[in-house]
Design a protein around this nucleic acid. Structure first.
Lengths: 289, 289
DNA sequence: CGCGACCAATAGCCTGAAGGAATGGACCGG
DNA sequence: CCGGTCCATTCCTTCAGGCTATTGGTCGCG
């Protein structure tokens, strides 16, 4: 049983994404016949049909769907191997922590401070990125601050730092502003701005959003940490029927790095201290699953 | 930045394991110069030295150690892709559950029964294997019953089923047999049989071990479920300073299979029912970490 | 029905990279 | 200083991956 090559997996994924041999070949910088031949050979080697082809359309078979999924994680693992090996070879290795701007719930200074007291510390470099889970999976970062359920931390080890109740942000004058709690159904009439953590780009986007809310143009549901400090003319109401946003530190599941372990300990310590501080009204549990 | 090929990773691992180009090449079925050339090229592509060579000895550099680790998980992921795709192509796909004989703490019947009531069920096939975590990682099994800390479940999703206190098994006449609890230090004088879950082969090994204990030839520390039923002439005493053996169901971290999800639900349900049953004296927490 | 557009598969050829055989060079032990 | 060990280098061969050109099947449209 010979082993698949990453080239074959990458070629397959190109076709699986495009569902079109010609365009996929273009994207790969090779010609269509070469690609067709490779995919055919892949199917022969696996003993399984991956695509259903007609001269009009290409679709994935059931095994094709499985391979599309598995191939992605396998290629991620190969990329990670390259990346981490390269980084291990640099003169002064750093610990790269991925987060999104403001995505630390104010916890980062405490984490960094606690980290300095750990053994086996490296210089920490904070980088900002969109798909932070992927950065960790591909080895571009050693750890990341993620929010579940919006980020997908599967395949990573995680340490839960804090759980934040989702808050609806409303104008102080809004009819629902006096309610003790809300359900999502209460907000269906509003022009709801669904918070998409992955899509955030500029740092100003939150304050812009707040501005729009104050103008009555929209309302939003955000994790608590993003709502402070809150403008005078806005108010927040907990939403009870969506799961809380959980901030967690994530790192590669098979990590053996002492530095990453130290960071995890530091983060846990900082989060524990924060959770017991009087200013925090946290760990409200959502009801949805 | 071109992508590494699995061939390169496999060749590298062969050398990393043997620390000898000639023997590694033998094992791979190629000649030594071909292997040397490939490794050199790999080092050039990564921009990093992987081995320290003298004509007398070959050793891994620091980046080499990193790659050895990363390459293994990457190759596992590729194997898993192959394996799962092939299995998805078989006529009637089954759900393969890996365990070791007797390694279910008596929970398997309840799990299977609960599973039948779930939606999206497949036929379950139980297989026995030594390195069950690896079987899941490589796609030879869809789920496994593992014991932590002896099995390494990193990189897998898990559901904790039950936690068992470690019990010292002694002849009833043993001087320590009357103690309420023991520490490992108490047993240093004995000819202690360290339980190695991975090394278990035949089903008879436990009863043979019990026989040896009854003869006073050895004593053993085992998770509770392996000690029942207990011979008349033996007794057990909890050991407090080693971590409890935790039985868990593990499956690939990035699984999207409805059937695996159903099995996880079923196992959780069966374990919950078992934990509340009067016969169980479980979840004793160990103190070690 | 016939024609063109579209798209994957096939055929035939070429190039480069993987591998083999022979050899060189460094090191060590006797 | 010689022989053995082991990795690197050189040179040659083979074949798999890629390209161009073409075929064959299907759909849409006049």
């Amino acid at each position: 049983m010979d082993r698949l090559e990453t080239r074959e997996l990458a070629y397959f994924l190109a076709v699986a994404d495009e569902l079109h041999f010609g365009r996929a070949a273009d994207g790969l910088g090779i010609t269509q016949p070469a690609l067709s031949k490779t995919i055919r050979q892949l199917e022969r080697r696996l003993g399984v049909a991956l695509f259903e082809r007609t001269s009009r359309a290409v679709t994935l078979t059931e095994p094709g769907h499985v391979l599309a999924h598995e191939a992605r994680t396998a290629l991620d693992a190969v990329s990670a191997a390259t990346e981490r090996t390269r980084r291990a070879g640099t003169r002064d290795p750093r610990l790269i922590l991925a987060m999104k701007p403001g995505g630390d719930a104010g916890l980062l200074p405490a984490i960094l401070a606690a980290y300095q007291h750990e053994p086996d510390v490296l210089q920490i470099e904070v980088v900002f990125g969109g798909d932070r889970a992927r950065m960790v999976r591909e080895g571009q970062a050693d750890a990341a601050l993620l929010y579940t359920p919006s980020d997908d931390a599967r395949g990573l080890d995680t340490e839960m730092l804090l759980s934040e109740a989702p808050l609806a942000v409303l104008p102080a004058s809004h009819p629902l502003a006096h309610r003790a709690t809300l359900r999502m159904a209460d907000l269906t009439d509003e022009n709801l701005h669904k918070h998409d953590p992955a899509g955030d780009s500029a740092k100003g986007s939150i304050s812009e959003l707040m501005h729009l809310i104050a103008l009555g143009r929209t309302v939003a549901v955000l994790p608590q940490s993003l709502t402070t400090p809150l403008r005078e003319d806005l108010t927040t109401v907990p939403v009870t029927d969506i799961p809380p946003s959980v901030l967690q530190l994530a790192w590669p599941a098979h990590s053996t790095s002492l530095s990453v372990a130290a960071l995890a300990r530091a983060a846990a310590k900082a989060a524990a201290a924060d959770n017991t501080s009087p200013s925090a009204i946290r760990s409200l549990r959502g009801t949805a699953r």
